[in-house]
């Protein structure tokens, strides 16, 4: 494919197509769109009726990428694009910091505690599990080399309490952890910082 030099900015059509692709709901968390999740990296027309979309996975093994690509292809085909190429890009690595404020708000409203900000700067946030027999007190996980600890508490998306406990660091999908609120006793998913 011979590509002409990229124009200085997105064209009106590219902006429109990007908006359409960005409005596609996430296959596993349909309350947020791909734009709000921050996984759409770019869209370029490569010829008449031909478009190339750059998508980045949340996790390397995220199986939803294939569904996302298929959904993007469908909406752009419906818009008259004959050939849609969805490319997966890994760099720069996606972070939960890429989720927009609106996306965070929607996650919370749907009962998923949004990720705490600053993941990209600090690396994965250390987690806490209940006490072991000998220690008697909850033990902070050993932070990865070179990372800052002391995370802010994960709040219950139902009642807002900061008194929540980790049940399992992997929940229904790799990107979520399972927690329980000690105030209202409801279990809930937490979108882990990455």
């Amino acid at each position: 494919m011979v590509r002409t030099p990229a124009p200085p900015g997105p064209t009106v059509l590219e902006e429109k197509l990007l908006e359409l692709a960005g409005a596609v709901p996430d296959p596993e968390l349909p309350v947020v769109t791909l734009a709000e999740l921050g996984v759409l990296r770019g869209l370029h027309l490569t010829g008449p009726g031909r478009v190339e979309v750059e998508l980045t996975p949340t996790y390397t093994g995220c199986p939803a990428v294939e569904a996302m690509a298929a959904d993007i292809e469908r909406v752009l085909h419906d818009e008259g694009m004959v050939e849609v190429e969805v490319r997966t890009v890994l760099t720069p690595a996606w972070s939960t910091d890429d989720i927009t404020p609106e996306g965070r708000r929607k996650l919370g409203e749907s009962g998923v505690a949004p990720p705490r900000p600053g993941a990209r700067a600090d690396g994965p946030v250390a987690l806490t599990l209940g006490p072991t027999r000998r220690s008697g007190t909850p033990r902070e996980a050993v932070p990865p080399p070179g990372s800052a600890a002391a995370p802010e508490p994960v709040r219950c998306p139902h009642c807002g309490s900061a008194d929540t406990t980790l049940l399992s660091r992997f929940s229904s999908t790799a990107c979520k952890a399972l927690r329980r609120c000690e105030a209202c006793r409801e279990p809930f998913d937490h979108f882990k910082e990455l």
Binding site: T60, L90, P124, T132, S135, R139, V142
Partner: peptide, 24 residues
């Protein structure tokens, strides 16, 4: 760059279980 962040969670998982089982 991408996977190192995922693996940090794997290590944390293994460490926590090692503590649980060793100190159980």
């Amino acid at each position: 760059r991408k996977a190192v962040k995922e693996v940090a969670y794997h290590r944390d998982h293994a460490e926590q279980w090692t503590l649980r089982l060793g100190d159980g």
